Simulated scan of single mutants.
Amino acid sequence: MRELSSKKNQVCKLSINEQITGKWQKKTYRIIRELGYGATGTVYLVDSDRGPLALKIASEAMSISSEVNVLRHFSKVQGPSLGPSFFDVDDYVFRGKVYPFYTMEYINGQPFLPFLKAKGPEWIRVLSIQLLNDLQKLHEIGWIFGDLKPENLLVTENPTRVRWLDVGGMTRTGRSIKEFTEFFDRGYWGLGSRKAESSYDLFSVSMLMINCAYPSRFEKAGKDGKSFLVNKVKKRAILHPYMPIILKGLDGKYLSANDMKRDLLELIQSPASNKRNDNQRNKKMRRYQPSNRKKRSNADTFGKSRWLGVFESLLVASFLLILYILYLFGQNV
């Protein structure tokens, strides 16, 4: 699971190898290490009779009750798990004070932005398609993610899969978003309300794509948030293929996550996208081709160029096939 951001006032400090036992369920957990802490509590990696789990402990029940309710609700939903699986909730009594805690699935993966940096910008569309597929399922059962940002996403390996963390910001459709981060909040940019609806999450998906090109993010300058964001998109070449999709998301023109996902899939199939992939692979091939100081005949040059073209076409086809397999896996997992 990701390392959470730290704050000075920590509600309950537990030591490595310390064992805590729940007051009601009597289950024992051994602290392996701290994963981090925030406003609502501290998260630890623990060892249990189920294996490694994530345990979140708080100073009072109200701090984590909404998160427990959300996780419990999703554990009853048939199909893929929307976020970490929920396991247990209990109290830990220490020096006469009661600390509520709950345990959930420990997701071992790589943070969203570092994964893209390592794998390349082509993976923006793959992970976005997976994310949109899950958002569609979430919206269909009446929930909005709300605080959708890279810090709340992990990418697991074998198979490559984007997973959600920190469900504390999830809100029932129609209510006011209860947790948000300004960069991903359409209200901050003056492009909509903070009403919990599918278009709120899809705005955040567009900002997620922008964040991939601007990892350190930026603040709003001036009153016209839309023009400011459009200019930022234009300045990053890796965002140009996604510009129509990003703008529709910013404008709230998508009626559902499926609509946004469909546009991304069409982008994968477009000739222009294939040409971009060809160009990227041409650059990589030239980078690793050894220099040959001997002169070659025109026939040799033509033969090697033709072979190289066939090889590059196979690479492009293989890449697109991988994208479709990942997309289909995201629908079935």
Rank of each mutant, 00 (worst) to 15 (best):
S5C: 04
S5Q: 14
S5Y: 11
Q10K: 15
Q10F: 05
V11R: 12
V11N: 04
V11P: 08
C12R: 15
C12V: 13
E18Q: 15
I20A: 08
T21Y: 09
W24Y: 14
T28L: 08
T28Y: 11
I32S: 12
I32Q: 11
A39G: 15
Y44D: 10
L45S: 11
L45P: 02
L45N: 05
R50G: 00
R50S: 05
R50E: 06
P52K: 13
P52H: 09
P52G: 10
L53K: 04
K56V: 03
I57G: 05
A58P: 04
S59R: 07
S59G: 10
E60Y: 00
E60K: 04
E60F: 00
S65C: 05
E67P: 05
N69M: 06
H73G: 00
V77I: 13
V77C: 00
G79T: 06
P80C: 06
P84H: 01
S85F: 01
D88P: 00
D88E: 15
V89W: 10
D90S: 05
Y92A: 02
G96I: 00
G96F: 03
Y99W: 08
Y99K: 02
F101M: 08
F101T: 03
M104V: 08
E105V: 06
Y106N: 10
Y106W: 09
N108T: 05
G109P: 05
